[in-house]
């Protein structure tokens, strides 16, 4: 079976203030259909860069990047990135409804477009706020609008760049569960960048840890926790705690010593 989205021996070098900076080297990752893969790493480890390459927003300096069997050059069809800073990603002059319609309005007739927008807004629970302007909503709601905008295009792959990173813990937990439900409903492949270990273990089928400079994949870990997962019971399971322990270790934390970073 061909993976939905993959990279092989990927290298990324970006121009810096003092010469070129090598960010990624020899990264090989293949994400299967309907899989939920998290990319973990400390800040500055290149995880956002990796996601931008997969999303076609940044060209690779070496290696190959493929979506299905096609090499990626520019954002591929059916692959949508969700950014962390929702405030700058949504168009403030459009209502929620018209923001969600942005990706499909040129391609679909009006009736079908409305149907899709309603469907996407229902999935994120914002149908009753459709006529509001996004800047009148809370941060969590704005991020849900951005997710709905991606969902309205019926993507095969969602690339999410620390989507809940700027939200408070309560909002974050409820959005995590909503995202699980959405994936269960739609079967979308999700690549999820985060620096939150609990979040990665809780959500993923598999997680990879980026470390080193230039970074490559240090740990690749299957998360065989049963679904549906639950914020309280799943996080009490011994295997959850065991997995969490291993990830922290891979990130360079050791027991009895404060975190390094």
């Amino acid at each position: 079976m061909t993976p939905t989205i993959s990279c092989d021996d990927l290298a990324v070098t970006l121009p810096g203030a003092s010469g070129p900076v090598h960010i990624l080297r020899g990264v090989t990752l293949a994400v299967e259909k309907a899989e939920f893969v998290s990319i973990l790493g400390t800040s500055g480890s290149g995880k956002t860069t990796l996601l931008r390459v997969l999303g076609g927003l940044l060209p690779a300096s070496g290696g190959t990047v493929r979506c299905d069997d096609t090499a990626i050059s520019g954002p591929p069809e059916g692959v949508v990135t969700v950014f962390q800073d929702y405030a700058h990603s949504l168009l403030p002059w459009r209502t929620v409804r018209r923001n969600v319609a942005l990706g499909i309005e040129a391609r679909l007739p009006k009736s079908e477009r409305d149907e899709r927008v309603d469907e996407a807004l229902t999935m994120v629970g914002l149908l009753d706020r459709a006529e509001e302007y996004p800047w009148r909503l809370s941060g969590g709601m704005q991020q849900r609008v951005q997710i709905a905008r991606a969902l309205a295009t019926r993507p095969r792959v969602l690339l999410m760049d620390e989507p809940f990173g700027a939200l408070d813990a309560m909002t974050k937990a409820s959005l995590q569960d909503q995202l699980q439900q959405v994936q269960e409903l739609t079967g979308t492949t999700i690549v999820f960048v985060t620096h939150d270990v609990e979040e990665a273990v809780y959500l993923s089928d598999r997680l990879v840890v980026l470390n080193g400079s230039p970074a490559d994949i240090g740990l690749s870990l299957e998360i065989p926790l049963p679904r549906p997962r639950h914020q309280i019971t799943t996080k009490e399971r011994p295997d959850y705690l065991e997995l969490r322990h291993r990830v922290y270790e891979a990130l360079g934390h050791t027991v009895g010593e404060p975190a390094r970073g």
Partner: peptide, 13 residues
């Protein structure tokens, strides 16, 4: 805002 333009790009406008 560059992020808005990227949003347009990922939605293939």
């Amino acid at each position: 805002e560059p992020r808005m333009l990227e949003s347009g790009a990922v939605l293939r406008l």
